[in-house]
Simulated scan of single mutants.
Amino acid sequence: MLSPTSTDVIRATLPVVGAAISDITTLFYRKMFDAHPELERDLFNRGNQKQGEQQKALAGAIAAFAALQLEPDQARVDLILSRIANKHASLGIEPSQYAIVHTHLFAAIVEVLGDAVTPEVAAAWDEVYWLMAETLIAMEAGLYASAGVAAGDVWRDVRVRERRHESADTVSFVLTSLDGSPLPSFAPGQYLSVAVHLPDGARQIRQYSLSSAPSRGDWRISVKRAGEVSNFLYHNVFEDDVVTVSTPFGDLVLQDDDAPLLLVSAGIGCTPMIGMLSHLADTEDSRPISVLHADRSASSHAHRAELTELVERLPFAVMHRWYEDLGARRPEGSLREGRADLGEVTIAPGTRAYLCGPLPFMLGMREALLAKDVPAENIHYEVFGPDSWSATV
């Protein structure tokens, strides 16, 4: 909790800092990478940096966290920081790295805001930063402890047992341990990081949802051919190859209750839903489950046949599919043409909704769910890439 003095200063300066936060975070990354080029080369997502997505997400998180110190809302704080902490854990972030961020972030604040950064202003924002950082460090320590690993020690080599095409541009990899022992379990909906060394020498890391049930002793990820890491995996990794992956993390997980479920996905966002459905089918779950998926076409729909099979294994599950291009097919049964629309979908009281797909798709689905009286706290989501949602909703 912020001190009363710092609270007053943050209240007075938040509009100015908030208006400049995008400039601050952009300059921050430039300064940090100039001082530590290995972080840009070996840890941060170069694609997100180039597109400005990481800067936007960081700016939103800082501004939202600061605002929540003035009007406390612990649920929103937990939402924002839990997602960051899980992503950090999957990257093996260690407490000492927060000091590096602090140095270059505050150098950027001073450079952008100039004389407006008085000693009192600097002290107040320093307090905000360390309150946020120490909360994240504590969360990450809990995640590492739950995973049974030391802080940052999340990496292991695994072997590709099977590679299979799941659509025209997506392959799945079944991963096993090198010694044949079962891999650690995970919660349905979680993801792991994959680290690869690219031809230019950079070590780049991306996260992939686990698209298998946790009870099988192996891990499966599905990779769509898009972006430098996914393209590298698609074109270069085959059976018996060894890849480096992290322990599974992520907070888009099924709640331990019997609430009706609504699983909503678009494109490659189907992967955490496939993992959840695999678990639900393996445990013979009997609750009402509605599965909604949108895609460009049947040939683009990764895990299309598997999705149908999983829904058929669940006694009270129904499926709705939308393809923008049906080709020679005609709308029938659960198959519709166009974009996903919840207008005719019945949603049972008490439903928990899980969303994954492009951000505009998920924001649209969230608005539709709220309009159908689904409580905001029952709407859960996963963003592939920097999270620019949680700081804005």
Score class of each variant (00 low, 15 high):
S215W: 02
R216L: 05
D218R: 01
D218H: 09
W219G: 02
W219P: 03
S222H: 01
V223H: 04
R225V: 03
A226M: 06
E228Q: 12
E228I: 10
E228G: 02
V229P: 07
L233G: 01
H235N: 14
N236R: 14
D240Y: 11
D241T: 13
T244W: 03
S246G: 10
P248W: 13
F249D: 09
G250R: 09
L252M: 15
V253Q: 15
Q255D: 14
D258E: 14
D258I: 04
P260K: 13
L263T: 05
V264H: 00
V264I: 15
S265R: 04
S265Y: 02
A266Y: 04
G269T: 13
G269F: 10
C270D: 01
T271H: 09
P272T: 02
P272G: 08
I274L: 10
G275I: 05
L277K: 07
S278G: 06
H279A: 14
L280S: 05
L280E: 07
A281I: 07
T283C: 01
D285A: 12
R287D: 03
P288R: 01
P288A: 02
L292R: 00
A294K: 00
D295H: 01
R296L: 14
R296N: 05
S297E: 02
S300A: 15
H303L: 15
H303R: 08
R304S: 14
A305K: 06
E306P: 00
E306W: 10
L310C: 05
L310D: 02
V311M: 07
R313G: 04
P315W: 03
A317G: 09
M319N: 05
H320W: 11
R321Q: 15
Y323P: 03
E324L: 10
L326D: 10
L326H: 13
R330E: 14
P331Y: 08
P331R: 02
P331L: 04
S334P: 10
S334M: 05
S334F: 12
S334V: 04
L335P: 06
E337F: 00
E337G: 13
E337M: 06
G338P: 09
A340P: 07
D341V: 02
E344N: 04
V345G: 00
P349M: 03
P349E: 07
